[in-house]
Nucleic acid binder design. Structure first.
Length: 801
DNA sequence: AGCCTTCGGAGGTCG
DNA sequence: TCCGAAGGCT
């Protein structure tokens, strides 16, 4: 165990190279603190150095540290950096995701939380199928109450910290939804499963309703550090408050200090419940003493940074922050207007090849970002045609693949035969003659008897019953067979007995699946041997001196024969019951791991490949060169978001995140037409272009290609299209206001996508423009008269609303 | 039970 | 246009 010794602590190498703000944050005296950490300001470094500094100077012991992140990746990085920084046993600290830590709490105090120790975790797929099952059983009209919407509703309630009885319901529909919510809860409880929201809510309630437990953790965690605080939802905030202290006379009486690190300008997850308002609430309710802004950016050249600052200054509700850099201006931000989405992709590929060939950029240091996944297609195909290696982020993750979910379902049934979700997933997979009809009978029987499907099997008569019996027997036998086997052994045996591998052998395209199943064995193997399990093994609550909880008030007077929990943990010791010392089996630990950490979602890692991802997925990453495509009204900002101000501001923050990913080069582009949902859409360039500083931009004039050859103009007068009103609801603009006199090429004020009115043909849409001056012609599509080329010097066209 | 057709919907996503 | 879900047909 690490023993702090301030006198012999090596002086300051830890603090070397920190700027004054970072240094101040790292060495803050006790008290709650809010660190506003701009993009690329060394946020993670500050967090980890803070922890190291606290330990080194005797302000905290490892057991007194709680550090919370949102993603496993962030948690891992923190652990890795910390390990490199200090010869400290990281195991004493609680570092992890909100859900990971909640999992620990609930396992350790499962009795108080009213859960089986080996409870299983439902991911969103499982949750949805559980709800569908419930709807069938209670004859819920799935037209009126789509299961997806119900799942959304339930998750939302939980994120707000609301149980069914707390949800206000004034009309019949909401009362019904609340009723279903309650039924769903009962079903989960009966089956011993929890969803992600429940993990948070249940552990919040555990702390709230059990004074000794709450007191224990409050006393233990002297320092609570929260990463990406702007992404916390209401419930996570409430959870933090429970951990930090009790409220009395409107003030939080706190034992420890909370350091919240975040950036309101990078809050892009309101749609999944994040409340930026938590930052203001935190300052008020915790009476925050220290607020520090980290505005020094170590990532980007100033043209990029100025662009980001300029853009985000158009948002009104900000805490206020301005990034600065000591690096030079760097290259200008390049802006390209393409005729079509295809041309845009081609341009990107051309630029990428030049960056690699002429400027020596590594492909993996080049990223193409887009607002929505649908955009990746064209870009992928162009990269593919040009034989440029690329990698797409997103999509299915390892533990979410169907074959893996099937395998996990078998494993879960070994642990808990009453897990109906898993039961239904594999009862007839591989096919064993158990059809929908049979399952209906079985489910009816189970509901009548109020028991699990497993227990109701004997109630089904005839051949169907026999088939069911065979399935149950198969699982029971497997359970017997695997007693005492290693995790690897269990999985191999399961793959064999279940017939999964056999099934996929006969299926075309089954080879990949078999490969994945083999990979599952490997994953289990490395889980047992490597740090994964070893680190999780510290779920055991230790008090602030690293002492085991068996000597703390929580478990005093309980089992005196409980094993001493402070002895070195064996790798398979798993998570330990705070009362009895009972450990989690490797199998349950692995299943938990699979649910909490669904694995990477990137294809072929490692290669030097161009990175493709959504802007959301890019948060927290950085690249030498960044392309942001599809900067068009309706796409970015997205239609669904740009109607109200909050939505639009979040879109702008999203754009801010995108821009700040770039270190050296930034490329922006938009296309005049884009294939969307099988139709060509004519898009106006994004209003965000007008919110960037012109002096940092360099518009690249497209080559004369007979299409869209007019020089784009970055200045005023862009017509905001799709956001206003209908699909093509253009605002009325006269030629004059739409085209500054300085721009010859746009003197006719037309561009592809505009809606125009012709005295004879009526309303139409401009498809393309060719030529200059008197030769200028426009291709216009009129719904009643078809597509026509019109000489602009002759035809009288007006832009319409 | 498995294949085929039809229909609807189409935004971002971590645990 | 393309994808998945759901329902019908063999």
């Amino acid at each position: 165990m690490y023993s702090p010794d301030p006198l012999s602590a090596p002086a300051a190498p830890l603090l070397q190279g920190l700027n004054p703000e970072q240094l101040a944050a790292v060495t803050l005296p006790s008290g709650h603190a809010l660190i506003l950490a701009g993009a690329g300001s060394g946020k993670t470094r500050v967090l980890t150095t803070r922890i190291a500094w606290l330990l080194q100077n005797g302000h905290a012991t490892p057991g007194g540290i709680l550090a919370v992140t949102f993603t496993n990746k962030a948690a891992k990085e923190m652990v890795a950096r910390l390990t490199a920084m200090l010869p400290v046993n990281v195991r004493g600290m609680w570092i992890g995701t909100f859900h990971g830590l909640c999992n620990r709490l609930l396992r350790a105090h499962h009795k108080a939380a009213n859960l089986p120790q080996a409870f299983q975790i439902l991911d969103t797929q499982d949750q949805l199928s559980a709800i569908k099952r419930l709807c069938k059983q209670f004859n819920v009209d799935e037209e009126r109450f789509p299961p997806k919407q119900l799942a959304y509703f339930i998750a939302n309630c939980k994120e707000e910290g609301l149980r069914p009885r707390d949800v206000p319901a004034h009309d019949a529909d909401s009362r019904k939804k609340v009723e279903i919510y309650a039924l769903y809860e009962a079903q989960c409880q009966r089956e011993g499963v929890v969803d992600f929201g429940e993990l948070m809510l249940r552990s919040y309630e555990l702390l709230r309703d059990h004074d000794p437990i709450r007191a224990h953790y409050q006393r233990r965690f002297r320092h609570i550090l929260v990463d990406e605080f702007q992404d916390t939802n209401r419930l996570q905030y409430l959870w933090l408050k429970q951990m930090a202290g009790d409220e009395a006379e409107g003030r939080l009486q706190s034992h420890g200090c909370v350091m919240a690190v975040g950036d309101d300008d990078q809050s892009i997850y309101a749609f999944r419940g994040a409340r930026v308002g938590n930052m203001a609430d935190f300052v008020r309710e915790f009476a925050v003493q220290h607020q520090i802004k980290l505005e020094q950016n170590y990532r980007s050249y100033s043209n990029i940074l100025d662009s980001a600052n300029h853009l985000i200054s158009h948002n009104s509700r900000r805490l206020g922050k301005n990034l600065r850099t000591t690096q030079g201006a760097g290259e200008p931000v390049r802006v390209y207007e393409a005729a079509t989405d295809l041309a845009e992709a081609q341009w990107m590929v051309d630029e990428i090849r030049q960056l690699v060939k002429n400027d020596g950029f590594a492909r993996k240091e080049i990223a193409v970002l887009y607002r929505s996944n649908a955009q990746s297609r064209v870009i992928e195909s162009q990269l593919f045609n040009a034989s440029v290696p690329y990698r797409v982020y997103g999509g299915l993750r390892f533990f979410e693949r169907a074959e893996i979910k099937h395998a996990l379902a078998y494993l879960r049934l070994l642990e808990n035969p009453h897990d109906d979700t898993s039961f239904l997933r594999v009862v007839n997979f591989p096919p064993r003659g158990i059809g929908a009809r049979t399952l209906e009978v079985l489910q009816d029987a189970a509901r009548q008897a109020g028991c699990s499907l497993h227990d109701a099997v004997s109630a089904v008569p005839g051949k169907a019953g026999a088939n069911l019996g065979a399935f149950v027997a198969l699982v029971d036998v497997l359970r017997e067979q695997t007693q005492g086997l290693s995790l690897r052994g269990i999985i191999e045996q399961m793959l064999e007995s279940s017939g999964l591998v056999e099934h996929f052998r006969t299926e075309k395209e089954g080879a990949d699946r078999i490969e994945n199943l083999q990979e599952l064995v490997n994953a289990a193997e490395s889980f047992v041997t490597q740090e994964g399990f070893g680190r999780d093994a510290v779920a055991l609550p230790l008090d602030e001196h690293g002492q085991s909880l068996t000597q703390s008030p929580v478990s005093q007077g309980l089992d005196p024969d409980a094993p001493r929990l402070d002895e070195p943990l064996r790798p398979t010791a798993g998570i330990i019951d705070a009362d009895t010392g009972e450990t989690l089996s490797p199998l349950v630990a692995f299943l938990t791991h699979a649910a909490l950490e669904a694995g990477d979602n990137q294809a072929q890692a490692g290669q030097d490949a161009v990175q493709l991802m959504t802007v959301h997925a890019s948060k927290g990453l950085e690249f030498d060169a960044v392309f942001i495509g599809g900067l068009e009204e309706g796409l970015f900002p997205h239609d669904n978001a740009s109607s109200d101000r909050d939505g639009l501001e979040e879109e702008r923050r999203l754009m801010y995140v995108a821009i700040t990913r770039a270190r050296q080069r930034l490329y922006l582009s938009h296309a005049q037409t884009r294939l969307l949902h099988g139709q060509t859409r004519y898009n106006v360039k994004s209003r965000f272009f007008d919110e960037l500083p012109e002096e940092a931009l360099k518009w690249i004039t497209p080559k004369q290609q007979g299409f869209g050859s007019f020089a784009p103009n970055s200045g005023a007068g862009s017509a905001y299209g799709a956001s206003a009103g209908g699909r093509f609801g253009f605002k009325s603009e006269t030629f004059a206001s739409a085209s500054p006199a300085s721009s010859k090429a746009t003197s006719h004020g037309l561009r592809a996508g505009l809606a125009v009115f012709h005295t004879k043909f009526g309303e139409g849409k401009v498809l393309a423009i060719e030529g200059q001056g008197d030769d200028a012609r426009a291709q216009v599509h009129f719904p009643r008269h078809g597509t026509k080329w019109l000489a602009l010097s002759v035809a009288k066209l007006t832009v319409v609303e």
